[in-house]
Design a protein around this nucleic acid. Sequence first.
DNA 1: ATATTTGCAAACGTTTTGCATAGTG
DNA 2: CACTATGCAAAACGTTTGCAAATAT
Lengths: 136, 136
Amino acid sequence: MNTIHKSIQSSGGRLTKIKKAITDILSQSCCLLTKQELVNQLKAIHIKPNRSTIFRELGFLTKHNVIIKNTIVGIDYYEIPKGHHHHLVCMGCKSISKVEFGNHLEKQEQQIAKENKFKILNHSLEFYGYCHKCQV
Amino acid sequence: MNTIHKSIQSSGGRLTKIKKAITDILSQSCCLLTKQELVNQLKAIHIKPNRSTIFRELGFLTKHNVIIKNTIVGIDYYEIPKGHHHHLVCMGCKSISKVEFGNHLEKQEQQIAKENKFKILNHSLEFYGYCHKCQV
DNA sequence: ATATTTGCAAACGTTTTGCATAGTG
DNA sequence: CACTATGCAAAACGTTTGCAAATAT
């Protein structure tokens, strides 16, 4: 049983076929998935949950921080919160990939926190443009 | 007639009371506004448009880049695209303010573009935490 | 055995659409 | 005058809810 499965259980959830499948698919994906893409991948392995079940599962997993919901240019994406990374958003094919970034923002973060008397806990950074395939 | 009013007209839109009011309110706001906050501010100056009119106006203005729609932690905010800035998102009072940032990300941007063969045109950066008032 | 999860159908709220009238350029 | 904008009512859409049966621990 992996870390994600454990965190589902410690949130009071049960390790059902659907929860397992959703988190496995998201874990193995290199990019962020929409609800629809997720449902399609579930279908591919012959899991066809009811609409309301999908809403409830995604709600549960998001609420307990097992997965993260991220709205980018108006579309909701889901991903596993793994490591610190940012996103490359392709305005051509609309795919969103993850990119490692390290701690390059730390200094600016401290300065901004000081100037604005704002306690910064976290940040998100998205780069918009065109992926290799979509550059002509 | 200001720049925003001109850009409405050059998009084929007419300078109606509602369009003027929406863009004026957003221009003068130091923070990002939700649709509801916008509607409330319109009410305050005795403009009470129909629901569908609000949707249509925000749609028009967003489509023609007169205003920007930004979804942050699940809530849609509207703002005027003015200068390059980022956002401080207070997890306490849920207010979102703008913060100037300069070009500090340029080097990292170039590196990421190179490593991922990704043509970066733009980026967005949000800092999450607690504003001065909400820090206890 | 008990509490959670699921599917189904109905309810709900938001967003969109068609059309007639009003308003802008 | 031509074309956009508006309000209204109806339709469409996504999401949520109540309940009974199925499933996990």
